[in-house]
Design a protein around this nucleic acid. Structure first.
Length: 887
RNA sequence: GGACAUUUAGCUCAGUUGGUUAGAGCGUCGCAUUCACAUUGCGAAGGUCACUGGUUCGAGUCCAGUAAUGUCCACCA
C-alpha cells in the first residue's frame, strides 16, 4: 500500500468496476425494493456544489440500503428545463450576434440549436454524476424530454383534459415581455424597488381620489372599489360615473364594494383595472359571478406597448412613455393631488429577468378547485391529504417531511394555490397535445387522423413534466409496480412548491399513489461569508476542481458534515481538507492493521479478552447501532461524526496504541481484522472509493458495494454484564492513568527518553501492595494494559516525600521527580480544581437537600447525584490532603 | 403585512424525551516525533448558551415577550 491515499489514481477505475459489476442495477439484486429518483438536473449547464450535496445524500442512502440487502434503484436523469434552457441558449446566441433568435432562426432551427446545447450539457452532467461516485442505474437513465417521458406527459394531459381539470380560458396571467411567454405564479421572483405612488382623480367631478403606482393602466379602469363599511363612500356604491381620460372610449367607472379594500391605505378607494392586475381580475370575476359585471379593457399588449383602447394619444407607446404622458395630462388638468415615494414589490420573471406584465390572454390552466370526476375531491384536496391524513386517509400513504416544519409551510401554500397556468409560448418543451381544425378541437396522446389538423403552438410548463418524474421514469416492465411509491426523495427547500407539490398532484391524481414515502429537505450551501454561490458573485466552486484537489470522498464527507435538515450550511476549503486528512487517516490505519499478522479466523474465548479488547468491541458494537440509526433518521452529519470519533479517537489513538504492547497476538488479530472490515462497511456509504480500495486489498474477489451491513451481535462479548462493566471501568481507568502520566511528563518537561518512575496504588484495595517500578511511558501502557496489579509498585518514604500526586479517579499515581516539579504551579492547579469541585458540591448539596427533588425526581437520578456528591467530596478530601503535604 | 428559521468558544456547528461541571472540529498557544499516519499525536487557553420574564425541585432545552440576522409567502392599490 502507498504511504498516503491518492484518490486520483484509483477513483475512475473503481467506478468502472462498480458499474461493470451490474449491482447499480436493481435487476441484479434481490430483497425488498428501495427506490430513489434523482432530482433531474437542468440541462442548462454544469453541476454545482448543490448537486454534489444531493448526489452525496442520495448515494449514501442508496449504498446503505443496498448493504441492508435491498433491491436498490437510484434512477438518474436530466431535465430539459423548458424556459431555463431556451432563455440560456437565446442569451448565448445573442452574444454571438443573433439578437432575435426566434425570428431569425425560426422554430425548427432554434430548437435544433437548443437541442445541441442540451445534449452537450447533458453529457457533461452525466460524467459529473459518475465522478461523484453516485451508484445509479445507468440502464434506466431518463430525460424529461425523451420519447417515453413525452408519452406519459401526453397521457396525463389528455386524462386531465377529459376529466375537465385542464381548461382553456381567458384570464389575467403573468407575461414576460422579454421572453414573450407566460410564467406561473411560482416562477416569479419578487423584487423590491422604489416606486412612486400617485394620488389623483379621474376628473374634476369624480367623487373620490384614488392612488396608483401604474397611472398608464388607469386608461383601462372600469371600476373603483371601496370597502363596504367605509362610510365616506357608501353612498356611491353601485353608481357608474363616466370619465374622459383620453382613452379610446370614455370610461364607465362603476363604484363597487370589496371587503379586501383597506380604508386606511391611501384614499381608501382603489381604481380597478381588470385587465392588468391579478387582484383586480379577481374582483372582475367576483362581480361577474354576482351578476353585476364590470368591463375588462386591455390597454397593454404582448409587446408591452399601449393598445388602441388606450386612445390615440397613447397607442403604440411603451408603458413608461404612456405613464409620463398620462401624468402630464393629470397635472395640466389639476387632477394630480399627491406624489410620494414608496417601496414596491414587483414580480420578475425568474428566467428572463424582466418585470412581468399582467395581461388577459387565452391560456391553458389546471383547475385545482374542481371536483375530479368520480372522486368528490379536488386536486388541491389530493395534495393536502397526502401530507396530512395520508392519501385516501391511509396513514401508510402519508408523506413524511423531514424536518416536519415544512409540512406547515406546504399547507399554507396549498391553501393559497390558484389555478396553474401551464401553457408557455416558448418552443423548447412538450408541445400541448391539442389539435385544432376550424372550430373542432382534439386532445389525445397522438395527432388525430385526417387532414387539416393543426397542433397548438404552445408548450407546457416544465414542471408539468417534472411533476411526473417519480413514475414517468418507471417505464420498464414491472418497474412501476415494484418501485412506486418511491422510498425516499431529497430536495432543497427552494423547489418545495415548484416540484414537490406538483409531484404529489400528478402521482395522486394519475396513479392514486403518493409519489414518495419520505422526503428529506436539505438546506442551501453558502460560502464562508454566508453568501449564496452564484456565477455573478464570482464565488462559484466547481465540484470537479475540488475532487481533483482532494478526492471525491473528501468532497462527499465535507458536504454532509455539519449539516442539519432544512438548514443552510457553509462550505469552505478547510472542511474538505480535514475530510481529506481523515480519509488518509483511515488509509493509514488500514495500512498498519493489514501489515500486521492477522492470522486468526476464530473468535477468541471470552476469558482471554483483555479490558481494552472488551472496550473496543463494545464501542464498535454501539457504533454499528448508532450509524444505522443515524442513517435511518437522516442524521447524516451525526452519523459521520460518530464514525470519525470512533475511527480516530477510539480505534487509532487508543486501541491501536495499546495493542502495540499486547502480548496475545491471536486476540488482537481477530479484533483488528473484524473491526477493520466492518468499519469499512459502516464507512462505505459516506466515502465509497477509499473504503472499496482498502477492501479490495483484503478481499480479492468480492465488492464492498454489496457486502451486508455488519451485525451487532457479532460483537457481543458473551460475558456477564458485571464482568463487562468491570472491564470497561478498568480500561477507562487505564486511559485516565495514561493521560495523567502524559500530562505530568509534559508539564514537567520530562523527556520521553528519560526513565520515569511511576508508583501507583489502588486505594480501594485497602492495603496497598506495591510491587514494581515501571520504566517509561510505553512500558506503563504495557503494564497497565495487562492489569491493575502490575502497576502497583513499591514506594519508599523517601520517594513519597517528593511525590507528585495526581488524582485520577480511583487510581492515584505518584511520580517522584523532585527536580522538575514546579510546586507553586501545582498548588495553583489543584486549588483551582478544588474550587471547581466545591462549586459543584454545593450545587449538588442544594439539590439533594431539596425535599421536592428527592420526592419528585426519578430514583435513578437521585442515586446518581448522591454518588456524584460522594465522589466529589472524596476527591476534594484527597487533594486537600495532598495540598497540606505540599507545604 | 404574514409565516418560518437562526442566535451556544475567535470561526463553523453539535447538544436526542428538561437532570445539575455545556461538547466537537477548525483556528490560537505549548509540547512531542526513528513508530501505520506531519494529510501525525498529546495538551492548554477560550462560553453569564442573544436579552427579559415565566413554568419547574431543576431550563441551553419548555412557554411568553424583546432584539438582531436570514428565508419564504402576500393582491396596500
Amino acid at each position: 500500500m502507498e504511504k498516503a491515499y491518492e484518490p486520483k489514481k484509483i477513483e475512475d477505475k473503481i467506478y468502472e468496476t462498480w458499474e461493470q459489476s451490474g449491482f447499480f442495477n436493481p435487476d441484479n439484486l434481490t430483497g425488498d425494493p428501495y427506490s430513489i429518483m434523482m432530482p433531474p438536473p437542468n440541462v442548462t449547464g454544469v453541476l454545482h456544489l448543490g448537486h454534489a450535496l444531493e448526489n452525496s445524500l442520495m448515494d449514501i442512502m442508496a449504498r446503505y440500503q443496498r448493504m441492508q440487502g435491498k433491491k436498490v434503484l437510484l434512477l438518474p436523469g436530466t431535465d430539459h428545463a423548458a424556459i431555463a434552457t431556451q432563455a440560456k441558449v437565446e442569451k448565448v446566441l445573442a452574444s454571438q450576434g443573433i439578437k432575435n433568435p426566434r425570428q431569425e432562426l425560426g422554430r425548427d432551427k432554434l430548437l435544433e440549436k437548443i437541442r445541441e446545447y442540451a445534449e452537450n450539457s447533458k453529457a457533461t452532467i452525466l460524467s459529473q454524476i459518475k465522478k461523484m461516485g453516485t451508484s445509479c442505474d445507468w440502464s434506466r437513465l431518463s430525460y424529461t424530454f425523451d420519447e417515453a417521458r413525452s408519452q406519459t406527459v401526453n397521457e396525463v394531459f389528455s386524462k386531465m383534459y377529459n376529466d375537465g381539470l385542464i381548461y382553456r380560458g381567458y384570464r389575467v396571467i403573468n407575461w414576460s415581455v422579454k421572453g414573450q411567454s407566460t410564467c406561473s405564479d411560482d416562477e416569479l421572483v419578487h423584487v423590491e424597488r422604489p416606486a412612486k405612488l400617485y394620488t389623483f382623480k379621474y376628473g374634476p367631478a369624480f367623487p373620490m381620489s384614488i392612488a396608483t403606482t401604474r397611472p398608464e393602466t388607469k386608461l383601462g379602469d372600469t371600476a373603483v372599489a371601496v370597502n363596504p363599511k367605509d362610510e365616506r363612500y357608501a353612498q356611491y356604491i353601485g353608481q357608474t360615473f363616466t370619465v374622459e381620460v383620453g382613452a379610446l372610449k370614455p370610461l364607465a367607472i362603476k363604484i363597487i364594494a370589496d371587503e379586501s379594500i383597506d380604508p386606511q391605505f391611501g384614499t381608501g378607494a382603489v381604481g380597478v383595472t381588470p385587465a392588468h392586475s391579478p387582484v383586480d381580475f379577481l374582483m372582475y370575476e367576483k362581480q361577474k359571478a354576482q351578476n353585476n359585471p364590470i368591463e375588462l379593457i386591455p390597454v397593454i399588449d404582448q409587446l408591452g406597448k399601449m393598445t388602441e383602447n388606450a386612445g390615440p394619444n397613447y397607442v403604440g407607446l411603451t408603458v413608461e412613455e404612456a405613464r409620463a404622458r398620462f401624468l402630464d395630462w393629470l397635472k395640466s388638468n389639476n387632477l394630480l393631488e399627491k406624489e410620494e415615494d414608496i417601496a414596491q414589490n414587483v414580480g420578475t420573471s425568474d428566467r428572463f429577468g424582466d418585470v412581468v406584465e399582467a395581461l388577459p390572454m387565452v391560456q391553458w390552466f389546471v383547475d385545482v378547485n374542481k371536483t375530479i370526476p368520480g372522486k368528490n375531491k379536488t386536486l388541491k384536496d389530493l395534495i393536502r391529504e397526502a401530507v396530512t391524513t395520508g392519501h385516501n386517509g391511509d396513514q401508510n400513504q402519508k408523506i413524511k417531511i423531514t424536518p416536519d416544519r415544512f409540512e406547515k409551510v406546504s399547507l399554507d401554500w396549498i391553501d393559497n394555490l390558484r389555478d396553474w397556468c401551464i401553457s408557455r409560448q416558448i418552443w423548447w418543451g412538450h408541445r400541448i397535445p391539442v389539435w385544432y381544425k376550424g372550430s373542432e378541437i382534439y386532445c389525445g396522446t397522438k395527432s388525430p387522423e385526417g387532414e387539416g389538423w393543426e397542433q397548438d403552438p404552445d408548450t407546457l410548463d416544465t414542471w408539468f413534466s417534472s411533476g411526473m418524474w417519480t413514475f414517468s421514469t418507471l417505464d420498464k416492465k414491472d418497474d412501476l409496480k415494484t418501485f412506486h411509491p418511491t422510498s425516499w426523495m431529497q430536495m432543497g427547500y427552494e423547489i418545495l412548491f415548484l416540484w414537490m407539490v406538483r409531484m404529489i398532484l400528478m402521482s395522486t391524481y394519475h396513479l392514486d399513489q403518493i409519489p414518495f414515502l419520505d422526503v428529506y429537505i436539505h438546506g442551501m450551501l453558502r460560502d464562508e461569508k454566508g453568501q449564496k454561490f452564484s456565477k455573478s458573485s464570482g464565488n462559484n466552486v466547481d465540484p470537479l476542481e475540488v475532487i481533483e484537489k482532494y478526492g471525491t470522498d473528501a468532497l462527499r464527507l465535507s458536504l454532509i458534515s455539519g449539516i442539519t435538515p432544512g438548514n443552510d450550511s457553509k462550505f469552505y476549503d478547510e472542511k474538505v481538507e480535514s475530510a481529506r486528512n481523515f480519509c488518509n487517516k483511515l488509509w493509514n490505519i488500514s495500512r498498519y492493521i493489514l501489515s500486521s499478522d492477522l492470522e486468526n479466523e476464530t473468535k477468541p474465548e471470552v476469558k482471554i479478552l483483555r479490558s481494552s479488547d472488551v472496550w473496543i468491541i463494545e464501542k464498535f458494537s454501539s457504533l454499528i447501532e448508532s450509524t444505522g440509526q443515524g442513517l435511518e433518521k437522516y442524521q447524516f452529519s451525526q452519523a459521520a461524526e460518530r464514525l470519525v470519533e470512533f475511527t480516530r479517537n477510539d480505534l487509532a489513538d487508543w486501541y491501536l496504541e495499546v495493542a502495540k504492547f499486547e502480548s496475545n497476538k491471536e486476540v488482537k488479530a481477530w479484533v483488528l481484522k473484524n473491526i477493520l472490515q466492518d468499519l469499512l462497511k459502516l464507512w462505505h456509504p459516506f466515502i465509497p472509493f477509499v473504503t472499496e480500495t482498502i477492501w479490495s486489498g483484503m478481499n480479492e474477489s468480492k465488492l464492498l458495494l454489496i457486502e451486508k451491513w455488519p451485525e451487532r451481535n457479532k460483537y457481543s462479548s458473551g460475558m456477564e454484564d458485571w464482568q463487562r462493566d468491570n472491564h470497561l471501568l478498568h480500561f477507562n481507568k487505564v486511559k485516565e492513568v495514561i493521560s495523567a502520566i502524559r500530562n505530568i511528563r509534559l508539564e514537567n518537561k520530562i523527556d520521553i527518553k528519560n526513565k520515569i518512575t511511576v508508583i501507583a496504588r489502588i486505594p480501594e484495595s485497602g492495603n496497598p501492595a506495591f510491587k514494581s517500578v515501571i520504566e517509561d511511558e510505553q512500558e506503563i501502557i504495557k503494564k497497565l494494559r495487562t492489569g491493575v496489579e502490575d502497576i502497583q509498585v513499591e514506594i519508599s518514604n523517601e520517594i513519597l516525600e517528593n511525590a507528585y500526586f495526581a488524582p485520577v479517579g480511583d487510581v492515584n499515581i505518584y511520580v517522584p521527580f523532585a527536580g522538575a516539579i514546579d510546586k507553586v504551579a501545582e498548588k495553583q492547579r489543584f486549588e483551582k480544581e478544588v474550587a471547581n469541585l466545591e462549586k459543584y458540591i454545593s450545587g449538588l448539596e442544594r439539590t439533594l437537600g431539596n425535599t421536592d427533588f428527592v420526592k419528585k425526581a426519578p430514583q435513578a437520578v437521585v442515586d446518581k447525584e448522591k454518588k456524584n456528591l460522594k465522589d466529589a467530596q472524596d476527591k476534594v478530601k484527597e487533594i486537600k490532603g495532598y495540598l497540606e503535604n505540599l507545604r
